[in-house]
């Protein structure tokens, strides 16, 4: 347990000290959402209607920008070898590193979403639910990205391949994330059933994805 905390703390500290990844993800999110009204036109009703989907899709893409770093740096400098020789099972190492990605990338993105919602005429009274849904749904994003990152470990220019592998797996998160917000904004129905599905997807990913990542990491030691 202490070892897992030490690893988590180190990964978060490294992400903030090296800085680049978080800044790029936030900047990318801002730019993608900011140019959308230029493409869609100034129709405020239209923007409000597409805002949930647009905010979610842009968030997924922004989160994937730094996903290939989840294991890459540790693989490159030999840290991953030493990590396997500690007291933690490889799946816990993978879970800890995915969690660090969530804290350093997905949480800042989710907290930026309300500001970007204003650009899209997103109804202000639904903003708390938007942030809540994103905070609840994004663990699935980070943990599934961990699978992609471990599968593409050691490949050159792995980022694009990772996006190809992982984006289709985000469809359930996207569907239930968007329908939570849409139900709250336009109805019909209550936002809570899709919200609970979102919780379920995140919880299942947090349990299953590290096992898959660990299996993929083990094949990379050949």
């Amino acid at each position: 347990m202490k070892a897992a905390l030490a690893l988590l703390r180190r990964d978060i500290e490294l992400a903030f000290r090296e800085g680049g990844a978080i800044g790029v993800a936030l900047g990318f999110y801002l730019v993608v959402v900011a140019i959308a009204p230029f493409g869609l036109g100034p129709d405020l009703n239209l923007l409000a209607r597409v805002a949930p989907g647009l905010l979610w899709i842009a968030l997924l893409l922004a989160a994937l920008l730094s996903a290939d770093r989840i294991f890459h740096n540790d693989h490159e400098d030999g840290s991953l070898d030493i990590l396997t020789m500690g007291p933690l099972p490889l799946a816990v190492v993978a879970a800890s590193k995915s969690l660090a990605h969530w804290v350093t990338t997905c949480v800042p993105l989710a907290l930026l979403a309300p500001v970007l919602g204003l650009l899209l005429n997103f109804p202000i009274d639904t903003i708390p639910l938007l942030v809540l849904a994103m905070l609840v749904g994004t663990p699935a994003v980070s943990f599934i990205a961990g699978i992609g990152a471990s599968l593409t470990l050691g490949l050159r220019r792995s980022g694009l391949l990772l996006a190809l592998l992982v984006l289709p797996l985000y469809v359930p998160v996207l569907i239930f994330g968007v329908s939570t917000i849409s139900a709250a904004v336009t109805g019909p129905g209550s936002p809570w059933p899709p919200f609970l599905m979102l919780c379920a997807i995140s919880l299942a990913s947090m349990v299953l994805a590290p096992l898959a990542s660990a299996a993929a990491l083990r094949t990379s030691f050949r």
């Binding site: 202490k2 030490a6 180190r10 000290r17 400098d77 030999g78 840290s79 030493i82 500690g86 007291p87």
Partner: peptide, 22 residues
């Protein structure tokens, strides 16, 4: 051949982390 040293951590932080982890 690879040292497992993180460039943005100090010397002491690197060693403290590995000790705490291992």
């Amino acid at each position: 051949h690879l040292n497992g040293v993180k460039a943005s951590l100090t010397v002491r932080e690197n060693l403290t982390f590995w000790t705490a982890y291992l």
